[in-house]
Amino acid sequence: MDQPSSAAKADNAPPAGDLFHETDERGYFAERPARTAAPIATSEPEEKHYHGHRDRLRLRFRESGDTALADYEILELLLFRLIPRRDTKPIAKALLSKFGTLAGVFGATPALLQEVSGIGETVALDIKLIAAVAQRTLKSEIRDKTVLASWSSVIQYCHAAMAHEPREQFRILFLDKRNTLIADEVQGRGTVDHTPVYPREVVRRALELSATAIILVHNHPSGDPTPSRADIDMTKTIVETARPLGITVHDHIIIGKDGHVSLKGLRLM
């Protein structure tokens, strides 16, 4: 049987850009190269309608900062870079509609982000990278500082790290004798309404790190930070286990989507 010529194979091969477009949605929305010869253009192609809009948003941000822009417009500015060849206003509004706030958008999981039309795996991961940078920035505000004197920064960091987690997460901030942060560790992850906590393991880890004080933190994925009876009882058990070993439990903070509760502030410990 005759084999097809190399020229025929070349004619049947997919355009070189197709593989890129199929694997990266930022290029997916670019116009595909034509398979047939196109007439030679005699003038510049008509500019996409959203290009002028992008320039105006950038100008407003440059001249007046973020206060001049709505939340969806801030999100648009970011998406300009991530999805350069598509009108991103509908995508930005869809993200805010689904997740409620900018914090909700950046706190969402990659899988949930991809449920929004126009957001693929690459863009979802880019959004999570930006969220990670924001968390690291907030954490740097409490590193090597007296935690109890930087309480608002502690709350901001914990809220950014945990408020939008879909499952309960139990975190411990380990402090030295000057109440400076030694370590920040997630000790357990659980279900939507429960995380197993073992007081002896909490104290054991504090002794390993030579910590003299700890702050307990966990989130309520329901959004309501009101402590449960189990939260209160578990806190008291950890306090009683840690005290004989010279370890102080400064507080137990419960993080919700729109606020937090301090068990110490409520006089529950």
Rank of each mutant, 00 (worst) to 15 (best):
Y50I: 07
Y28G: 13
L148F: 01
D144A: 13
G104V: 05
T137R: 14
L266W: 07
E121W: 06
F20R: 15
I215N: 08
Q135K: 09
A103I: 02
I254G: 09
T191M: 11
M1Q: 10
P4Q: 02
T237L: 06
A160M: 15
T241D: 09
R136T: 13
G259M: 09
E115M: 12
A183R: 12
D66T: 14
I91N: 06
D2R: 11
P90M: 04
R167M: 09
G120H: 05
A149P: 03
L125D: 11
I182T: 10
G100E: 01
P4G: 01
E201L: 11
N12L: 07
A111W: 04
E76W: 02
E44I: 06
S262M: 12
R178W: 00
S228M: 06
H252I: 03
T42G: 09
T67A: 09
T109C: 00
R86V: 10
T109E: 10
I40D: 02
A13N: 13
G190K: 12
I254E: 03
D184W: 10
Q169V: 14
D231C: 07
D176W: 12
D66L: 07
H53N: 13
S228L: 15
D71S: 04
G246F: 03
L113M: 06
S150R: 03
A242T: 05
A206H: 03
A41I: 01
S5I: 07
T237C: 06
L59S: 14
T237D: 10
L266C: 10
H51R: 14
T191R: 09
I83C: 10
C158F: 02
D251F: 03
K139R: 11
H21E: 04
G256W: 06
Q187A: 07
Q135A: 09
A10R: 05
